[in-house]
Design a protein around this nucleic acid. Structure first.
Lengths: 213, 213, 213, 213
DNA sequence: CATGAATGAGCTTTCATTCAT
DNA sequence: GATGAATGAAAGCTCATTCAT
């Protein structure tokens, strides 16, 4: 956790530092991110940096937590009343929201993805313990709720299914990312494409795990 | 490519070096892998190392190529006569083989996966150009063959589907990895588990893309 | 250019580092100069060195620029009012000043000479572009001024003559160097010797290119 | 000196190795010349190389001695009967021969020049002691002979004058080298140019040191 | 006389972190 | 709360030379 000094900073300065950290981690990942580069971009002294944060890991964890907050804020309307929709509707909305969030916050997603991919990294491990398994957990919670309501078969391995659903989410985002790179053209088409794909997957999953066949 | 010197080495020594390289890359990935550590583990002089390999990339590429060879040898019986089986049978067999290979060669798979996940890395890019996109390509080839034979719907985005199938393959392997870690217990159960899961997925995919609904 | 850090250093320390750099480059030239040796002589940490300079080239260029400054300060009275003297007087004064400078700053001249001699070296090329061709250029400028004033024949190849004059300058300095090495004796003799020789050469050149025969 | 084994080699092989050494030293100079590169170019084993030569210096010294021999063979007709011509005629012929030799053996001259320029280098120092001061010595001998015959003033510093004459020779060659680079055009013009320049210098020198004014 | 693997000191450069002011 | 100089371990890589076969 950042030190008190960091939170005592004028909020503009704090925001600037956070933004620089986001840029750095998005471009280089944790290992290759350079604190020297960050303080240069920030225009602050190295000593100051270490009066805000304990070490590199500290900045990173703070950055990750910000990302989590932002994503949660983005997704929370969806998850506010999960009982209002059936599992598959929710799932569909979450995929779409995820894609939209990625579209609007590419850097944040980039950082997040690196975490999901490097689960063996000491720093990343630390995160997975407390923080970022969230995604899986949310899906698993929804799955169980669906089972409870009788929408979903009770004999499935919820851990595995939620893992897969989560992975597919990431894969789908990545696939569209690469497709889009350099493609600044029509966003309406893009949206349509997404919808089709998402619908396809919802159908797939529905067929596999719903009680209604 | 390693230098001649390397291939002239007594095969025991060569194997030892290769094994050390595999361990190192599996544990640290390309960037964090340390040549100093490797030569310490090997008990050879730094100069010797650089008489075997041109540079770090060289060792890494050699290691990757060994992995490719091993995997190919493992999978080739499957792909020898692809026309003998329908797409979904083949897919099933490939998933199973992949899981078995991963089970028998955990470190190799770990290295391989890092490649698949870090497509932006210069060294990994080099690989993807000539070599490692194979996985996607193989799936796409099979998909097209299936379409040709009328087993699979002709209106699917083969690139995307093969990307997803490939990702699912990796995710599945990873999932079981984490589950198994430290769990040296009954392998029969594990095998059964795999079969069930794979069958489930084949069904999912079949429902989504086969012509028979 | 050295980093700010370097110029913030207490001037004693800065001077000490500059002196060590001069010694090193004078003794070994750019390629063989060792940063390890420099920091050992300085008694500073390797990291510190790289907080003062960006790289080896940086120290070298800074050293060269110091030499340029010193030489300019030494020579500038001469070149302040070139129109007050005729070409041959100027030339005579410059030879003498050059010899005096060399006599007072042997190491600096040594470094400078290596540059003039290694025009093919990448680092030296960089210098020649902006900085060190000066010597030739100055002579060529003076030659052209002399031609304009009718002191010098208009049909000479100014480029070649200035090249030769420049080379002779260097050769003369070198010759006296070797003669003097270890010879700490009478400097009056030495001065007389110089005068005679310089006068001889001025006569030679005068005969070759002046309009008055 | 190369070992006996080198001279026992079939002369073709020996010549090939010598040629490779010339190429290497011409391109890189002594310090940057790489024995690894040489044996690669030669296609011989590293061990063999060290059975022909004691070390890097050994190859270099042998190469230099070959150059000396070649140059001597080229110049010797000139110096065979020095008493037949007056000093200035001889000097003129030597300048011209020097330029021709340089024109025909650019690599050899390149190596030779590096030596003349780096008199401080340990290896080069070794040479200057026994071998390569030749050039100066020859000129000094001729000067003294000229003085003896009454062609040249007796009050000149023969050491210095011969040093200067020698330097001018090198400078002239260099100047034309750079001028010619990439200029594959008419060689007749080039020859004429040389003659003019050489004649100019002979005149200069004659005016300066001859007894006839 | 040929071979080529082994060696290790040396190189330049990067980096997170500390600490006195 | 701000500053920035100091630190040194670690990185990848090169090279002339030796020596057992």
């Amino acid at each position: 956790m950042p030190k008190e000094t960091f939170f005592n900073l004028p909020s503009e300065k704090r925001a600037m530092i956070e933004e620089v950290a986001i840029d750095e981690f998005a471009e280089y990942g944790f290992d290759k991110a350079s604190i020297n580069r960050m303080i240069d971009k920030c225009g602050i002294a190295k000593g100051s940096f270490y009066q805000y944060f304990n070490n590199k890991k500290d900045v990173f964890l703070h950055t990750m937590s910000m990302i989590g907050d932002k994503k949660l804020a983005f997704m929370s309307p969806l998850l506010a009343n999960p009982e209002e929709h059936d599992f598959f509707t929710l799932l569909r909305e979450m995929y779409i929201s995820g894609l939209r969030f990625a579209h609007n916050n590419p850097k944040l997603v980039q950082i997040g993805n690196q975490v999901l991919k490097n689960k063996d990294h000491p720093v990343y491990k630390e995160l997975l313990g407390g923080n970022s398994q969230k995604s899986n957990d949310v899906f698993e919670g929804l799955l169980k709720m669906g089972i409870g309501r009788g929408e979903i078969r009770g004999d499935i391995d919820t851990k595995f299914i939620s893992y897969i659903i989560s992975s597919l989410n990431v894969s789908t985002i990545e696939y569209y990312y690469e497709k889009i790179k350099g493609n600044t053209s029509d966003m309406t088409d893009w949206d349509d494409d997404i919808m089709d794909t998402v619908n396809l997957f919802i159908d797939l999953v529905k067929h596999g795990i719903s009680t209604i066949n």
